[in-house]
Design a protein around this nucleic acid. Structure first.
Length: 344
DNA sequence: AAAACGGGGGC
DNA sequence: GCCCCAGTTTT
């Protein structure tokens, strides 16, 4: 195990990618980066990280900015609950840790949105604590090094991965080099398809490297069939403002803003939609259908233009709406069917 | 233990 | 079209 680790650490020292959160490392920057990176590719976050940190340079600034600001800054990154959890974590850091990110696995794990992986990552990478970490990369590397021919989401494989990581970090000279190196290896060498075993620091002691097709393991996760959701929206404008509402905190696009609408498992007729809306519409016409593929479902968005006499509700002009958190497809629809038509 | 939860990128 | 991604929380 010792030689495995030192070879991994040495490899990482030489081959670490130049990433924003590595360039300038602070506990807060690392915590934010880890929350952003959950189930999200490094390349996506690398583009957004510095802007986000400029906006929220400390936990205190984030708390004062408020959850809505954080949601807005999170736009396009998905899994929006993470943004709310990050804001809650910032509040917890300010209120119970004096504004400083805690350094122990236990204290980190008690923060909202921080589970075993993230706690171990921050503790080891920032504070050099001997804590193991297991992410998708580590699961893949473990299954290959140990030659475990199981599904990537097999609970027994996950357990083996934690044990493997634990063994590595205990034998390491530097928990941060060891852990980050392990993930970096999975991201750049031991990739899901066509891993480059020829340059891998673990190849000598890897079971899969001796196989003809090392990428045959781990086996793919089982994916549930995507559910279909029909979303019906009414674009209601008046004097350069559009009527919007905030989605419930839980579920799809939780806490994000959108035009008045309804969801159903089946498509609705225009009349049914009109009847089902909680406000009376003077006119309502269907203008477009958009299809959105998400990991867990297919969303059909039926876009309508409508008018109402009603004045109550939350109305926003273009500038105000730009500062609200919205799902990407919803933002696109407003840009296309509301704001662009102002020029007509 | 299983389900819920986005949006892209790579092929 | 399918698979994947620096996972966590809720049920």
């Amino acid at each position: 195990m010792r030689s495995r680790v030192s070879s991994l650490e040495g490899w990482f020292r030489d081959h670490a990618r130049d990433l924003p959160w590595r360039r300038h490392r602070t506990p807060w920057r690392s915590l934010v980066s880890e929350l952003m990176l959950q189930q999200t590719q490094v390349s996506r976050i690398a583009l957004r990280f510095e802007d986000f940190m400029d906006r929220f340079p400390t936990p205190r600034v984030m708390v004062d900015a408020g959850e809505d600001e954080v949601l807005a800054a999170w736009e396009g990154l998905g899994y929006y609950r993470r943004a709310r959890l990050l804001h809650a974590a910032a509040r917890c850091i300010v209120e119970t840790h004096g504004g400083e990110v805690p350094s122990t696995v236990g204290a980190l794990e008690s923060l909202p949105g921080v589970g075993k992986y993230t706690a171990g990552a921050v503790a080891s990478i920032v504070f050099e604590v001997r804590a193991p970490i297991v992410d998708g990369n580590v699961v893949r590397v473990t299954s290959r090094v140990l030659g475990l021919d199981r599904r990537a989401d097999d609970p027994t494989l996950l357990k083996e991965a934690w044990t493997f990581s634990e063994g590595l970090v205990q034998a390491s000279a530097s928990p941060s080099l060891c852990n980050e190196g392990l993930m970096e290896l999975g991201a750049t060498v031991c990739t899901p398809r066509r891993p480059t075993c020829a340059v891998c620091p673990l190849a000598e002691t890897c079971a899969a490297a001796r196989l003809e097709t090392p990428d045959a393991i781990p086996r793919p996760k089982v994916r549930p069939v995507r559910q279909v959701v029909h979303m019906h929206l009414a674009l209601i404008e008046r004097s350069g403002r559009v009527l919007l509402e905030q989605r419930p905190a839980g579920g799809l696009w939780g806490g994000l803003w959108q035009p008045l609408g309804l969801e159903s498992s089946e498509s609705m007729t225009l009349e049914a939609f009109r009847q089902a809306l909680p406000i009376e519409l003077l006119r309502c016409e269907h203008v477009a259908t958009r299809r959105r593929q998400l990991t867990h479902r297919t969303v059909f968005i039926e876009v309508h233009r409508a008018m109402t006499r009603r004045r109550s509700g939350r109305w926003f002009d273009r500038d105000e709406a730009s500062r609200l958190g919205m799902a990407r497809p919803i933002r696109d629809i407003l840009d296309r069917y509301v704001w662009s038509s102002e020029a007509d």
